[in-house]
Simulated assay, not measured.
Amino acid sequence: MSYIALIASASIVVQIVMLILVLASVLSWYFIFERAKVMGRFRNASDHFEERFWSGMDLTQLFRQVNAAPDPDSGTEAVFRAGFKEFTRARQQPDMDPDTTMTSIQRAMRVAVNKEEDKLDKHLTFLATVGSITPYIGLFGTVWGIMGAFRGLAMTSQATLATVAPGIAEALIATAMGLFAAIPAVIAYNKFSNTATNLISLYDTFAEEFSSILHRQVYALSRKNQARREAGADGRNESAQSAGTEAQRV
């Protein structure tokens, strides 16, 4: 008997199980191709931005360029935009506290990394679910089919292999379909999880390196502001002393 004939002659419960497994397999393959394409774009976009970042370009100019045309696939660019935007907002304040500013910058970059992590983990839960439950769904269909085969066997007067074999064969197809759906999903989930972990590590490393750069700029800017305030205070004191001296002469 052909596989199509075995599926057509299966009970309605086994056919429903097979339909569920086919749908799960089709969706998992769709997400496998979609995630492979997305992960590749994310890796290439992040590598391209890091080349621009470490090329020696002025950070303010780079921020203007990426802010005007942001790349949604570049996680490192998103981290850079979040951190530099917070730095730009903080340096406009004359009484900027460097420790508070660095805390705000690091928090903004951490939020950006978390958002990128959500993008990378999209649909991976579905692949993990397919890989873990489809063998059991297929096993359920097999058990149900074998139960039906033995019930039919009990109603016959003479049991032969030709009598019971078709029922067992159509039941075992459910297990085969469950494994066919589960194995690619598990392999893809492990592959994409490892890729996502590597990309998140790349984003975290970039955030730490960029944080060190901004740390130096924040404290240098804080020292300049402090020097300006002290110079202004000295100027006011000298003006007050001059005015006092002039008053005494009068």
Results as ranks from 00 to 15, higher is better:
S2H: 07
Y3T: 15
A5Y: 06
L6I: 04
I7W: 09
I7T: 10
A8E: 14
A8I: 03
A10V: 03
I12R: 10
I12Y: 09
Q15W: 09
I16G: 09
V17M: 09
L21V: 06
L23C: 11
L23Y: 05
S25E: 05
S25L: 10
S25M: 10
W29F: 15
Y30E: 03
F31G: 08
F31C: 04
F31T: 11
I32P: 00
I32R: 03
R35K: 15
K37M: 08
K37P: 00
K37H: 07
R41D: 01
A45S: 15
S46K: 07
S46A: 15
E51L: 13
R52N: 02
F53R: 03
F53N: 02
M57D: 12
Q61D: 10
Q61L: 11
F63W: 14
F63L: 12
N67Y: 05
A69C: 02
P70L: 04
D71P: 01
S74M: 05
V79T: 02
A82N: 04
F84I: 12
F84G: 01
K85T: 06
E86Y: 11
F87S: 04
D95K: 14
M96Q: 14
T101R: 05
T101F: 08
T101N: 07
M102Y: 10
M102L: 15
T103V: 02
T103F: 06
T103H: 08
S104E: 11
S104D: 11
I105F: 12
A108M: 08
M109Q: 15
M109C: 10
R110F: 02
V111A: 10
A112N: 04
A112C: 03
N114F: 02
K115F: 03
E116D: 14
D118W: 09
L120F: 08
D121A: 13
D121R: 10
L124Y: 07
T125I: 12
A128G: 15
S132R: 08
I137Q: 03
L139E: 06
G141S: 12
M147R: 04
F150V: 09
F150C: 06
R151K: 14
G152Y: 02
L153I: 14
M155L: 13
S157R: 08
Q158A: 14
T160W: 04
T160G: 11
T163C: 01
I168S: 04
A169Q: 07
A171H: 10
A176F: 09
G178L: 10
A182P: 05
I183L: 11
P184R: 08
P184L: 07
P184Q: 09
A185Y: 12
A185C: 11
A185K: 10
V186D: 07
I187D: 02
I187H: 05
N190L: 04
K191R: 11
F192W: 03
A196H: 05
T197N: 14
T197G: 11
N198W: 05
N198V: 06
N198T: 12
S201P: 00
S201N: 13
L202Q: 13
L202G: 09
Y203D: 05
F206P: 03
E209D: 15
I213H: 06
I213L: 13
R216P: 00
V218W: 09
Y219W: 11
S222P: 00
R223C: 00
R223G: 01
N225W: 00
A227H: 13
E230N: 13
E230F: 12
A231N: 05
A231L: 10
N237S: 13
N237D: 13
E238W: 06
A240C: 00
S242I: 11
R249H: 06
V250H: 10
